[in-house]
Design a binder for these strands. Structure first.
Lengths: 160, 160
DNA sequence: CCAGGTTAGTTACAATTGTAACTATAATCC
DNA sequence: GGATTATAGTTACAATTGTAACTAACCTGG
């Protein structure tokens, strides 16, 4: 009864979800980024752009930004590197010459086909100790949390 | 049968766990960082240091680094700001004058007691649509993934 | 007890990332 | 159809973060 007995509930960092998500994401990203960089000379933003263009060729930079959850400046920078290294071809849209039409070159597709097995293998090993039912629930929860986090927005933001 | 029918499995970014973790972590961190900055003038590294020192006063910087999953430089920078703003007191350990002994000042404790309700409320709202059983499985899985990710280490790292 | 190595923490510098202003096209609306 | 506003993307600059070198204090073996 002599301590700083305020009514504030305890918050232990190690049990705080935002902290735990950040640490896990960081661990995973660092591992992958190292592999991408060492083996393919690719940054994570560049890898994201390649992954999206491999599945959906012809997108504009803005659409790539949407699909990679990056802002347009990050996409622009990633593209600059990819075009320079001959992995992405950039043309202009006939109907709108502001917009670019992005496609992987043969070398770009080659990087994708070589990187995918590594990426999937890492993911597989990460999940390998979870039961299938745990994996699928985890996936569902992750999706729901993402939607929820998007809705919550900035904490205590003025509701203007 | 006319497509680029290589044997490479598909990888859609939006289903790739590392990507999804990164996006979620980012959404959550951005929301919290905004709130911490606006309301308390605190960065996330500074918040982490405060959270740890509130629960375990007297730690050294190296121990704070361990417990916050930050490197010693990040801790040093966060501490510089916190000491400057009078939220952390830094003394030297009697037995080892390299080591510092870090404690929150009254103002530091005050920040903690004011920020905790926000942080917990955000976490609560984030999780509010999950059933308790989902929450607890999610927690368990998160813990296991973190351990597993730590073990896996850099992808394809040379096993020297 | 002192030379060589180690550890705690900081400082200096490089690279990455975020923010804002800019350029060029295109769409709109008198 | 020309001024006005909006959009795609880049460039320039500021802030953050990571990496490496450094300083000061401690430890250890001979």
């Amino acid at each position: 009864m002599s301590e700083t007995a305020s009514a504030v509930p305890a918050l232990d960092l190690e049990h705080f979800l935002p902290y735990r998500l950040s640490v896990l994401s960081n661990t995973v990203s660092t591992a992958l980024a190292g592999a991408y960089a060492r083996r393919f000379g690719l940054s994570i933003p560049q890898w994201r752009v390649i992954a999206v263009l491999a599945r959906a060729p012809g997108l504009s930079a803005a659409t790539v930004a949407e699909r990679t959850a990056m802002d347009k400046v990050a996409v622009s920078r990633a593209l600059a590197g990819l075009v320079r290294s001959g992995r992405v071809r950039r043309a202009l849209a006939r109907s709108d010459r502001r917009r670019s039409v992005l496609t992987l070159t043969a070398r770009g597709r080659d990087v994708y086909t070589r990187i995918v097995p590594y990426a999937l293998e890492y993911e597989r090993r990460l999940l390998s100790e979870l039961a299938p039912s745990e994996q699928s629930l985890f996936n569902i929860v992750l999706t729901r949390l993402q939607r929820r986090a998007g809705l919550l927005g900035p904490v205590g933001a003025a509701r203007v």
